[in-house]
């Protein structure tokens, strides 16, 4: 079972549905004649569907539908959880004056533009490497996958320490070979690359779906190419790549959506590197060093749950909704293309 197969399985099932080979409960009586019984059966069937779906229907309405509408409502108010005041477009106007919000958005876009392609390329590279390994493939696969499972907070704390100049072992090693080391999480110019590095370390998720996709490429295509005398690169370029490109696109789009939410690692890296923060009596500013790790979701958190500008936080949430929705639509389109493509 692979990613690709999962997608196509959905399409297979759907086509079968269109052919209309009797669903559960749809006995022969349901079609013609006995309309009264048919109606009752239909109602029963509908109730059953409803019963099975009900947890999620309620959940969707309560934890998604309602809050989404409420977010729109609160975005027109000034609300600190004590006092509510309707302020019209004030919060929206502030968005355009709020340098920190734009700064945070630039940081998030930087991370999207750099980490997503790097992770996909690196993941693909490792996947390719794994398919070429004759011995110990399973061990290597586990080794490359494992860092992805390390809790993000722990991974970030570890990275800040390991890369910490003066005390961290990496600088120590670099010194031995005479490599200059930047002050990773203490320099505004290097903190985001540091986070990108952390993302590459935890490449396991991308690696494993790409590995599945690569292994899923039909062997006979390679054999045919081999008879034609194609070399390694040509086989990769003309067979592997076209076959797995939908999975690559899928990895990229989901990567974008995930990176738009990038919060934990950036926040923890800033906190741990600053060291001083989080002590009573100090007022901390997110995004240490120099606001370079302030991502958009962090700014939303800061406005909402530290400043308690709930109304403005809702405006920021709606901005996020817009961007994320855009990419979700791309994903949904892709999904449809997948399942339809299988028919031809």
């Amino acid at each position: 079972m692979t990613g690709l197969a999962a997608w196509t399985a959905a399409g297979r099932e759907r086509r079968r549905g269109e052919r209309g080979d009797g669903g559960p409960g749809g006995g022969p009586g349901a079609r013609g004649g006995w309309s009264a019984i048919g109606a009752r059966a239909r109602r029963r069937r509908r109730l059953r569907v409803l019963a099975f779906l009900s947890p999620w229907l309620i959940g969707f309405a309560m934890f998604f539908g309602y809050p989404l509408l409420a977010t729109v409502y609160f975005s027109f108010t000034r609300y600190d959880l004590f006092n509510l005041e309707y302020v019209g477009l004030t919060n929206y106007r502030f968005l355009f004056q709020d340098e920190d919000a734009w700064h945070a958005m630039r940081n998030t876009l930087w991370l999207v533009a750099v980490t997503v392609p790097l992770r996909v390329l690196f993941g693909l590279g490792i996947a390719q490497l794994l398919t070429h390994l004759k011995r110990g493939g399973a061990v290597f696969r586990s080794v490359f996958y494992l860092p992805y499972l390390v809790p993000p907070v722990s991974a970030t704390v570890a990275f800040v320490f390991v890369l910490n100049p003066g005390t961290g072992p990496v600088e120590h090693l670099a010194d031995m070979v005479g490599l200059p080391m930047p002050d990773w999480f203490n320099e505004p110019e290097w903190s985001k690359p540091g986070l990108a590095l952390l993302g590459l370390w935890a490449v396991g998720d991308v690696m494993i779906i790409l590995l599945a996709a690569v292994l899923d490429v039909p062997k006979h295509l390679y054999e045919a190419a081999e008879i034609d005398g194609a070399n390694g690169w040509q086989r990769f370029r003309h067979i592997t790549l076209p076959t797995i490109s939908p999975v690559l696109a899928f990895a990229a789009v989901t990567g974008v959506i995930q990176t738009l939410q990038y919060f934990t690692q950036a926040m923890v890296a800033g906190k741990v590197a600053a060291g001083q923060s989080d002590q009573p009596g100090t007022q901390t500013v997110p995004g240490y060093p120099g606001g370079s790790t302030l991502t958009f979701p962090q700014w939303l958190y800061d406005e909402g749950f530290r400043q308690f500008n709930m109304g403005y936080a809702c405006v920021l949430a709606l901005v996020m909704f817009g961007v994320a929705m855009l990419f979700t639509l791309v994903l949904l389109r892709q999904f449809r293309a997948f399942t339809d493509g299988e028919a031809s």
Binding site: R78, E85, F94, Q97, Q307, N309
Partner: peptide, 8 residues
């Protein structure tokens, strides 16, 4: 001043 205004 802008932030102050936002906070009311």
């Amino acid at each position: 001043d802008k932030a102050l205004k936002l906070a009311g």
